[in-house]
Design a protein around this nucleic acid. Structure first.
Lengths: 225, 225
DNA sequence: AGTTCGGACTGGTCAGACCAGTCAGATCGG
DNA sequence: CCGATCTGACTGGTCTGACCAGTCCGAACT
């Protein structure tokens, strides 16, 4: 049973995605909104903190809480807590590593690893269905880490875990655009299809497309092979 | 002036990254933590909501708030699992990384970096001329590390230094074959040519050939794209 | 010894209060 | 009449203190 603030966050996310609160507009006041949702202002504020961390909303003292969803963050500004790496550098970094470990994972895939990927994918889709972006991002990260794990390469596995937070930041960015929250999951399905076909090159290509799409979602134009 | 809950979130994030709260452990209780930070529990809870949205932490009712993120490891060397890499895994690993950072280095190359590469290359050739294989291997490693440096990607640079031991070991092996002492240096020249042509894809391809050749020199047959 | 039960924790939620900005409209002075 | 200023009704930010519902350990009872 999710907490009431998590439910409120999902509800607000949904209403933002459906266009009830357009980008740039202000949410109703916290007092009004908490009344509307029949929860305390404290719980509402926790929900808003969540949405703010996800980049859907920004609150300005004395003015209101404004929807920022869909607006592009500056790709050159380093992410707080991302180890000083910019979104641009993160995508370059991931483009270097992830297609490679995805290809290796394809060659070394076994029923156990495949089942783990399936469970993760279903978890992500379930989370998206209820609009739980926090859990969805969590499963998203798990998907990429599990792929690294399945590569069986100790160096790549080590790196994947070492840069876990940075990767997490990178794949969380696109979720601030409410229109395309299903795109990552769909692209994961394509990766899984290539894995099931046993085609390592196709898996690497699907992963490259996935990362390129992620870059595009956050407004990055990238020049890659 | 950031809100106090944002400050608290940052403080906690830092303490987690520094390893004060290891992955999997529980944070101090909210009452204790709010006391420690001299803020109200309400503000603390907003900070925790933020961290939870970022996937750093998960709170479980009745139990506590648990850290899900690992501490950011000190960029100083030894990494677990890295020492146990087979020559095969090492080549796979390098094939994932080095063509990528070589391509990036091509795009970001400047006269300074290019001069450094030239000095290294000449050093290696001089060492080979006098038959000093120890020095040659040293210059060889320098060449690869300088390429990583020139990629300007913080993540790739970090990795290059973390795995310098492994990479160094990997490229020292081929020198035990007296016949092909000059091959690595020749392949480096090809890489430099691609860099001078400004052709990132060609640089990556040259690096792939270099690594494939290195694998062949130590008797590895590899199945790669 | 094994079971049970109570109490001391944990996080989750709430109501109500006060502060500090913001902003528009009323008021006052020219 | 116009413009500067003041006032008050907003906004979000913070705090306090309370209660609920799980969790867990240890003491007491069987």
């Amino acid at each position: 049973m999710p907490s009431i603030s998590a439910i409120a966050a999902q509800a607000l996310q949904r209403r933002i995605a459906e266009g009830e609160f357009p980008s740039g507009s202000a949410l109703p006041s916290q007092r009004e909104l908490s009344d509307q949702l029949a929860i305390s202002r404290a719980s509402l504020r926790e929900a808003i903190s969540t949405l703010e961390a996800l980049g859907l909303v920004r609150s300005q003292p004395g003015k209101g809480v404004f929807v920022t969803a869909g607006s592009r963050p500056d790709p050159a500004r380093p992410l707080p807590g991302a180890g000083s790496m910019t979104p641009q550098a993160l995508i370059e970094f991931r483009l270097a590593l992830e297609p490679a470990w995805a290809a290796l994972a394809t060659r070394h895939m076994n029923t156990e690893g495949r089942q783990a990927l399936e469970d993760i994918q279903r978890g992500m889709e379930d989370a998206l269905r209820v609009g739980d972006l926090v859990m969805a991002a969590d499963w998203d990260l798990q998907f990429h880490l599990q792929l690294a794990e399945s590569s069986t390469n100790p160096g790549l596995i080590t790196i994947a875990h070492q840069f876990r937070e940075q990767i997490g930041h990178s794949l969380r960015l696109p979720f601030s655009n409410p229109g395309g929250i299903w795109e990552p999951a769909d692209e994961h399905r394509e990766i899984l299809a290539a894995i099931d076909a046993g085609d390592a090159a196709a898996t690497a290509a699907a992963m490259r497309r996935h990362l390129a799409a992620a870059a595009r979602r956050v407004g990055l134009e990238l020049q890659i092979e």
